[in-house]
Design a protein around this nucleic acid. Structure first.
Lengths: 355, 355
DNA sequence: AAACAAAATCTAAACGTTTAACTATGTAAA
DNA sequence: TTTACATAGTTAAACGTTTAGATTTTGTTT
């Protein structure tokens, strides 16, 4: 079953190898009886064309390289899942290359930005060494990685991260609108003293999310007091400390928007530690909808990034580009959505509204 | 950079293609000056050998296929991470194929056992279609999948799952000893009325873990009362219901061993709902050390499977087999270890021991 | 200097496909 | 009847390597 070649099939069917090839690929018409004869031999012998030889001849590997920064990052497996789902119905395969960056990082976000050399090198390897037709680069943070992608003559799609380079394609997710939406949700629930626990403030998602917050505040005619914005570093601990400092300040918030679930959970730790209740005394919302948000108690209200769609779309663009059905500059931003759970309470101030 | 061939290098260096090949692969001695000349041209031009052509000629793809049941399963990414880590220092690549089984399953464990046909088909595709040199099959449950792996003439290593077929290699993890160890830990903490919330009782891990529990009980001269063993189905809900039924029974346990973290967390839900405290009134231990166990409150004491090692070892075996440095039947069982957190309390019965 | 052996290098076939260019066959138009 | 022209099929060259086996070069021994 393994070592049958097209010549064996041709001989057994009494035709030339070209005819067999035409039958297999449907590239040229073949008389029905001969077609059947060839097909019969193929099924009888279980022949499968040698893809390596095909690739050599056609200069196409039918393989898409996926370069992931770290498969252990929570956002990466769902993205790969989305890619797989799209790819499954094509004749492409996936070559996976894991940079395993988490292993080599202390402060995860800040250092990762400077890993350009390694990324560049692995990408060149994928394209010119492993001979993939296209590359999907799966970042682990939402950030601009334009400086890091080498200029190659094959499609490169960035997933999750973004690129400010005009010609680079990416598929990322929405931050600003969803943040505004969450704020509106808190405001509509009667909250006015809302605090924000930000991620590292110089990072794109932190900036975009803050912009969303500000927009919602403006729309509601509220003012976002600077004392109500604390800067964390995306980790649980920082959420805890930011919240502690908020609790110790002059005007305590009645609601907190932490820019990711980890910090939100840290904030909940601090609130509980202070003997207060979530959401009884303070409402909390996070961002990411990580598994943890369902296991923490009470369950965390948060925002969900449609990671699977990011992967699916990236794969689709890659394949379309390979089939020349798409030569635009694709810059896709997948909408995020709220997932309502148990950490937000309606602020009981109806008497005010009725007055 | 992309389309330079070995012939171009040969011409530029004034040697034959054979000599260039010998220099690149070190397969035959080449005079130092010529060697340098060739190397210079290669670095100057950035030439990279065409791996497709190499594969066609040598009949080796230097690619290991990974067939995963579902990349979304919590155990899979760390296994891939381990595989990557080993592979990184070899000249092999990874072709990933995700069966995405979770998507198509209602009751996850029971149905997955019957997915044999799809597995078989994808494996054949990987080996004979995609032309990989070896396959690592990454299961999502610890179970015997021997019936499902077709007989092919290339190395197949099973990771996480196992095989009862004598000739199949696998790398899995330890259940029985670690379960006994956890029991001993509870017993040493003074617990005697210990309940067990089992996973689906006909599954290998449930059976092995129960055996460990029984062993520890016997060693301690205790008897495991049948009423103290409840059968769950690995999901959170079932842990909750099992615990409720335990709490409503005649002799309430002072400690519970849930056979995975999800059920342990469900049990904690029930305990808290009953107005009791963990671990104040009832101690709880889980299994898997999933992320959730750090986010639940109090943090869950549990057992950790060394998933990364499973992947690492599987990759190592695969590569060794490809280099003919290993032709044994590898059946590796990676030890698991306890991770102590906050859900177990020493039972205050010192007065009894002192009496 | 000749004869031989060893080492270095080269030539060309092979790996298994695809496909351009050619040939053979049948059909319609002149 | 010839000519033109689709249509179906074949031949053989490529794709870019590796590697036997042939050949040349170098070194050693007489």
């Amino acid at each position: 079953m393994a070592d049958i070649t097209i010549r064996d099939i041709a001989k057994a069917a009494g035709v030339s190898t070209a005819t067999v090839s035409y039958v297999i690929n449907g590239t040229k018409p073949v008389a029905p009886e001969r077609q059947k004869r060839v097909l019969d031999v193929i099924t009888k012998t279980g022949y499968l064309p040698n893809t390596v030889a095909q690739s050599l001849r056609t200069k196409k590997t039918n393989t898409i390289g996926i370069l992931v920064e770290d498969i252990l990052s929570f956002s990466v497996p769902p993205i790969i899942n989305g890619i797989s789902e799209y790819i499954e119905n094509t004749d492409y395969r996936i070559l996976l290359n894991d940079l395993r960056m988490l292993n080599s990082l202390y402060n995860r976000y800040d250092q990762i930005v400077h890993q350009g050399e390694k990324i560049n090198q692995e990408l060149m390897f994928l394209v010119y060494g492993a001979k993939v037709d296209a590359v999907i680069y799966v970042g682990m943070f939402d950030r601009d990685i334009s400086g890091v992608i080498p200029n190659i003559n094959k499609p490169v799609i960035i997933a999750y991260s973004t690129s400010e380079d005009e010609h680079t394609c990416f598929v990322t997710y929405e931050n600003e609108n969803i943040s505004a939406e969450m704020m509106r949700y808190l405001i509509n629930a009667g909250h006015e003293k809302i605090a924000v626990i930000s991620g590292l403030e110089h990072t794109p998602p932190a900036q975009q999310r803050l912009r969303g917050v500000q927009r919602a505040f403006e729309e509601a005619g509220l003012l976002l007091d600077n004392h109500m914005v604390k800067n964390g570093d995306w980790e649980r601990d920082s959420g805890y400390h930011c919240m502690k400092s908020l609790l110790g300040s002059a005007h305590k918030p009645t609601a907190v928007f932490a820019m990711n679930d980890l910090m939100a959970i840290g904030a909940m730790d601090a609130i509980k530690e202070a003997g207060l209740s979530v959401p009884g005394d303070i409402s909390v919302v996070g961002f990411d909808n990580r598994d943890a948000s369902e296991f923490v108690s009470p369950k965390l209200t948060t925002a969900e990034i449609d990671l699977k769609s990011i992967g699916y779309n990236a794969a689709q663009i890659a394949v379309e580009k390979l089939k020349s059905k798409n030569n635009g500059k694709n810059k896709i931003i997948i909408p995020s959505k709220m997932v309502l759970r148990e950490t937000v309470k309606k602020q009981s101030c109806e008497w005010r509204e009725q007055s």
